[in-house]
């Protein structure tokens, strides 16, 4: 495991890595600390995205774990988190970002230490954090995603992500496995082979497009939602063979398409635009394929419950195929690698 993590640190195409949990308290911080150990000698920037940011999780009230930081790493977090160990930090920048716990600063670690990361609440600010961390010299940026914030795992924002599966989702192993299957169905959607450049131009324009015969009809996802699809004639929808949808593809939208008689191929920018489970029979593909690097599992829930760790690993591996599955807490750490 740590060998592969070390290899990631050497990949130039992997500059931004995100962590996404399937539930609260899935074990992202534990994984992050494991990854950090492998990347301790690298030039790393780190921040968290989401509403949870206090010392205690605002959802569960539990004490948030601290993140292990290594000398030279740069974090983006609220000032209040940096003040306890003044000797550990060099404050290098004040960002125009307000987290739940106050203004966000960039600080470089003068030695190995720990810190709590307060979440940056919006995607735009997350994008600014990434930009600023790169600007101050971070070769790698790790984004610790908070609950239900999978947007940063989009291939548009990050170069790779790790899915963290924890028993906090359910004490039932079959339920956990089923949930992961649902995620994988989205993550393994095929990518476009035809019209890719055209779809990319629609993506840049942020418009939806429907192909009827040789022509493309453009509209926005907002128009679709407002009119529930009725702004396009039923005839056109029946005849259409392709749809590029630049918006949240929900079950409702899929059903509206089906009722209208549309049977063609649907393309969305990436898997993060797909909400709800897939409706059977829909042909959906993505413009930007997902870049899932690994699945990290955690068989223990914060309540003390546990599923069989060996069984969990075996069954998850069966679902995800070739993607590495790691139980970072149970894996032996190879001291020769880091």
């Amino acid at each position: 495991m740590n060998q592969i993590m070390k290899q990631w640190s050497q990949r130039e195409d992997l500059q931004v890595l995100s962590l996404v949990g399937i539930s609260k308290n899935a074990g992202k911080t534990t994984f992050l600390n494991g990854l950090g150990r492998a990347w301790s000698a690298e030039s790393v920037g780190l921040f968290s995205i989401g509403v949870d940011g206090e010392a205690q999780d605002v959802w569960s009230g539990r004490s948030k774990p601290e993140v292990r930081i290594y000398k030279g790493w740069i974090v983006a977090t609220s000032g209040i988190c940096l003040q306890n160990e003044a000797d550990a930090w060099e404050i290098i920048e004040a960002l125009p970002i307000d987290s739940v716990a106050g203004r966000v600063y960039l600080a470089r670690a003068n030695r190995d230490t720990s810190v709590k990361l307060t979440g940056v609440p919006t995607r735009q600010w997350a994008s600014l954090c990434i930009e600023q961390l790169k600007k101050v010299g971070c070769a790698k940026v790790i984004v610790d995603g908070a609950y239900n914030r999978k947007v940063m795992a989009s291939p548009v924002w990050s170069d790779g992500f790790v899915l963290v599966v924890g028993a906090s989702f359910s004490p039932s192993l079959p339920a956990l496995v089923k949930e992961v299957k649902g995620w994988m169905a989205k993550l393994l959607l095929p990518s476009t082979t035809d019209d890719t450049e055209l779809y990319q131009s629609f993506y840049r324009q942020e418009v939806c497009a429907l192909q009827i015969d040789e022509r493309w009809v453009l509209f926005t996802s907002h128009e679709w939602i407002q009119s529930q699809g009725s702004h396009i004639s039923a005839e056109d929808l029946k005849q259409a063979t392709k749809l590029y949808f630049h918006g949240a593809l929900t079950k409702r939208v899929l059903e509206q398409l089906r009722w209208s008689g549309f049977t063609g191929e649907i393309t969305i920018p990436d898997w993060t635009y797909l909400f709800d489970l897939l409706v059977k029979g829909s042909q959906i593909q993505v413009l930007f394929p997902s870049n899932l690097l690994a699945v990290s599992i955690n068989s223990t829930s914060p309540d003390g419950g546990q599923v069989n760790p060996e069984e969990l690993r075996t069954q998850i591996q069966q679902v995800v195929g070739d993607i590495p599955v790691w139980d970072v807490y149970r894996e032996e750490w190879n001291p020769d690698v880091s």
Binding site: N33, G34, R37, A38, P309, Y329, R330, E331, E332
Partner: peptide, 13 residues
């Protein structure tokens, strides 16, 4: 004959 995990703990079945 077993390495600890990254946190320096040994997790044994």
């Amino acid at each position: 004959q077993r390495n600890p995990n990254f946190q320096g703990e040994w997790v044994i079945s």
